[in-house]
Design a protein around this nucleic acid. Structure first.
Lengths: 231, 231
DNA sequence: CGGCATGTTGAGTCAATTCAACAGCAGTGG
DNA sequence: CCACTGCTGTTGAATTGACTCAACATGCCG
């Protein structure tokens, strides 16, 4: 596994090219540049676990390339994926000392990571760092709140429409999105079975609302109609 | 509407009696005692709106007596309640400037409130305050993550069992819980219809797992079996 | 080229919903 | 005091959206 260590002064050179941050500012970048904060690069293979639910929270991660799913399991194996993390996204931030979800690479993934210990230290003296940590957690919370509405009250088609628009916004570069995750992952994210996801996508294809290049390469042909289906 | 203003020095006298905080520490209390932070009391009537989705976030609230629901609506009226807030709980904390859910009193409710403006000011100079704000948001996030698992993957009976154990933990004082919310609220919290909630409760009653004093006064008779049903 | 992962589609089933009727209770006013 | 009214909760019957189970198609990797 390839590992590289970057000290604060050189970290700026690592800024991810061609990625528009979801946030107007880049809280992770702001933190990573603090004196005393050391960022490291690390690579995970497809399906490799980054951390497990209940494990001590030792690092904060930012995805450079690839994708990560974070999820919870029930004892009988039923799984709920809480979020997909894509290039530029930060994950693994847990004010409590233990992770509350498991994180796994969906595809081969490169992350930048910062020890929690140095974050705590930076936050203790630098109010702006503390504020950024809060902002990042709040961002996760907003997503979770929206997702509860989806899981509790939307129909299968509405869920898939919402998913497509979310992914389109987050990873479509050229009008085409290359989904890193399989149908089962999408189902476990949307609270559906993989078959139901597949049927909904086929139906949207039949209606001309989207077009497949391959099963995971999708272009939206009518965002307006899709937005109307989102409920 | 009765309003009372408390300055920091006297705020300690207002500590809510006979309420065990969900957290080992009391972040709200810690913040409310900061110099420059002024807490006010306010009363909302049953079904009165505390704030609406999209409104500017001006206050942080702590419930003294009563109960509040926070929810999101779809355009056709479908509702997802994200959380119930009970005495001692803090709600309305939003790092962004706008509320992302609507808050309504479930019954006549007394809250203590602190202006957001003074929080920002306190957090800018006091790292401990900043840390407490982060901790409170993280607490909301944890609940949301657990609730996504419930909404996406649990059966109706498992949802109701989880709900009963949550409420038992949070408001049972004498082995009896007095639910402030109606069946429709419970359904909208659990992603079910009110009829399904009612049927599940009746079934638990028939099985001797709980006992009704009235429709909203419930005593758990077998927490172990209920925990086993939680999945 | 074969073998396994992944994805699609069909048929039948079922858990939860919808629609409907009724019961219980609280508050109101004669 | 009791009928009246509205609201909340329960229960039954029929429906349905999503699931389960199954077969087959596709595509990728060695």
């Amino acid at each position: 596994m390839h590992t590289r260590t970057i000290t604060a002064p050189t970290a700026k050179a690592l800024d991810i090219p061609h990625v528009v941050m979801a946030e107007p500012t880049d809280p992770f970048g702001a933190i990573a540049h603090c004196s005393g904060v050391v960022a490291t690069e690390y690579t995970y293979r497809k399906d490799e676990e980054v951390y497990g639910e209940g494990e001590p929270s030792e690092y904060l991660y930012q995805i450079i390339r690839g994708a990560v799913r974070t999820y919870k399991l029930l004892s009988d194996g039923r799984r709920q994926i809480g979020a997909f993390h894509l290039p530029g996204d930060v994950f693994g931030l847990d004010p409590s000392s233990e992770h509350r979800l498991t994180a796994e690479a969906i595809v081969d993934t490169i992350v930048r990571l910062v020890p929690r210990r140095s974050l705590e230290k930076a936050a203790a003296s630098n109010v702006q760092v503390a504020r950024n940590l809060w902002t990042m957690t709040a961002c996760d919370l907003r997503h979770a709140e929206d997702h509860m509405l989806l899981l509790g009250r939307k129909t299968a088609m509405e869920r898939v429409a919402t998913f497509l628009l979310e992914m389109d916004r987050r990873l479509a570069k050229t009008g085409m999105m290359a989904l890193p995750m399989c149908r089962r992952d999408i189902g476990d994210y949307l609270g559906l079975t993989l078959e139901t996801v597949s049927r909904a996508l086929s139906q949207l294809n039949d209606q001309g609302i989207l077009m497949f290049s391959s099963a995971r390469e999708i272009a939206l042909r009518n965002r307006q109609r899709l937005t109307a289906m989102e409920a």
